[in-house]
């Protein structure tokens, strides 16, 4: 995945995060490397919403074997995860 495509993916991910978690921040204000769980108080229920969001909006289905909470640490790690799953 080239840099432009990766940046577009991160933009979409940020929009999804803001929408799904009803966050009162602009998507662009989320830093790529900000620790999401600590910064936005993401608990298990919210994290589950992101999993559903990946499936609904990115067509990513999470099999048991490849699920790791660490993939949701930052926008960067989420983008890596999505791009690998999309390959």
């Amino acid at each position: 995945m080239n840099t432009d495509t990766m940046n577009q993916l991160k933009t979409r991910l940020k929009k999804m995060i803001v929408e799904r978690l009803f966050l009162a921040v602009a998507p662009a204000d989320i830093a790529d490397d900000a620790p999401l769980m600590e910064t936005y108080d993401i608990d298990s229920v919210a994290l589950f919403e992101l999993v559903v969001g990946l499936e609904d909006e990115f067509g990513i289905s999470l099999e048991d074997a490849d699920f790791q909470v660490s993939a949701f640490q930052t926008v960067n790690s989420m983008a890596d995860f999505v791009s690998k799953k999309a390959e």
């Binding site: 769980m37 600590e38 108080d41 608990d43 909470v69």
Partner: peptide, 10 residues
């Protein structure tokens, strides 16, 4: 309590 739960990873 809620804050504690939310900081589950920590």
């Amino acid at each position: 309590e809620r804050a504690a739960k939310k900081r589950g990873a920590n």
